[in-house]
């Protein structure tokens, strides 16, 4: 069992979200940085999409009340287990009474705490992800509070080296100079003015403080304008959709986005780059680059193949662990 020592309205239990409930109006949800959550699960020999804690409010501290193998992955944060400093993307076993402390990131924005077996909360509509808007999933449909106690789902314990282990190559994070995201043109792309389409790709957009699991509002020097006024019927939208409301500043829909919307859509961020956005800090520049659908498919397939490679590397490493 682990006890949460720090409260916030933002730290939530997440897995890979609900893939089949959007037709009911339920957000897809799930970890904003799936690679980081998946990485932690691979280090603990859990299925990739096992539920862990998404941490966006720091410092975050937990106390272990039972021996618990865990991993901290994602953003580059100062992490300590009592007095022991842990490297990035690291798995280790915590003993009863020990405190894990995760402080504000040096780079990146979201850290993930995963435990062997996963967090034992009920699946709702096919996932353990917290849906804050709907008030279900995770722990009682809410963010984790100080004093919450979470149990780990039963799983055979795994042996880890006393000092823990991890790969020498951690998850990539966006650089301080800005986040490059690749996009495909979306439905109303061609109705934007030629200047707006150019601005969209050349401007440095700044991530505003209005950035949460539902959407990321960006701000730029210039605005994006349509050549004519549109009155769109409500339509389904996916995480990654870049909407442009009348004010002309883009909003990127994220994992907890509404399932339907009515604003014009200029582009969609490709799936592999959504996690980079989720690790972008407020005030950092974001650059869009349009690619072709073939290139996007190739990037998505490369991403899936990289994850398989990572899983194989970790699995091989586990057989070589020295105790």
């Amino acid at each position: 069992m682990i006890e949460i020592l720090t409260g916030s309205s933002l730290n939530t239990i997440q897995d890979f979200g609900r893939r089949h409930a959007m037709a009911m109006g339920v957000a897809q949800g799930g970890a904003m940085d799936r690679l980081a959550l998946g990485y932690g699960n691979l280090l603990l020999d859990n299925p990739l999409d096992t539920a862990g804690i998404e941490i966006v409010f720091f410092p975050f501290r937990v106390r272990f009340h039972a021996e618990t193998s865990f991993a901290v992955t994602g953003a580059d944060c100062p992490v300590t287990l009592d007095d022991l400093t842990l490297p990035r993307d690291w798995a280790i076993t915590g003993r009863p009474g020990q405190t894990l402390s995760i402080r504000a990131p040096r780079q990146g924005a979201r850290a993930y705490l995963t435990v062997r077996g996963g967090l034992d909360v009920p699946a709702v509509l096919g996932a353990r992800s917290t849906d804050l808007k709907g008030g279900f999933g995770g722990l009682e449909g809410r963010a984790l509070q100080k004093g919450d106690r979470l149990t780990c789902a039963p799983a055979a314990s795994i042996r880890l080296p006393a000092a823990g282990y991890g790969l020498s190559r951690p998850c990539p994070l966006p650089s301080a100079e800005g986040t490059q995201v690749r996009v495909l043109p979306a439905a109303e792309h061609d109705i934007f003015t030629p200047e707006s389409l150019k601005t969209f790709q050349t401007a440095a957009w700044t991530l505003t403080p209005s950035a949460n699991r539902m959407g990321y509002r960006l701000e730029g020097q210039e605005t994006l304008m349509l050549t004519r006024k549109l009155n769109l019927f409500s339509h389904g939208i996916l995480p990654g959709t870049v909407q442009v409301p009348p004010a002309g500043q883009p909003i990127i829909q994220m994992m907890d986005a509404n399932t339907c919307g009515g604003y014009p859509k200029i582009a969609t961020v490709i799936e592999p780059d959504l996690r980079l956005l989720s690790q972008t800090g407020v005030g950092a520049p974001v650059h869009f680059r349009e690619i072709t659908r073939d290139d996007a498919v190739q990037a998505i397939r490369q991403d899936a193949s990289d994850l398989r490679t990572l899983a194989a590397e970790i699995s091989k490493l586990r057989t070589q662990l020295v105790f």
Binding site: R19, A23, F233, S234, H235, G236, A296, V297, R301
Partner: peptide, 21 residues
């Protein structure tokens, strides 16, 4: 994977790892 019927429109989702768009 799933579909979202909108108002006179339809969003269709699939897996581009396995399916050619």
């Amino acid at each position: 994977v799933q579909t979202i019927p909108g108002v006179n429109n339809l969003l269709v989702m699939f897996d581009a790892v396995k399916t050619d768009p």
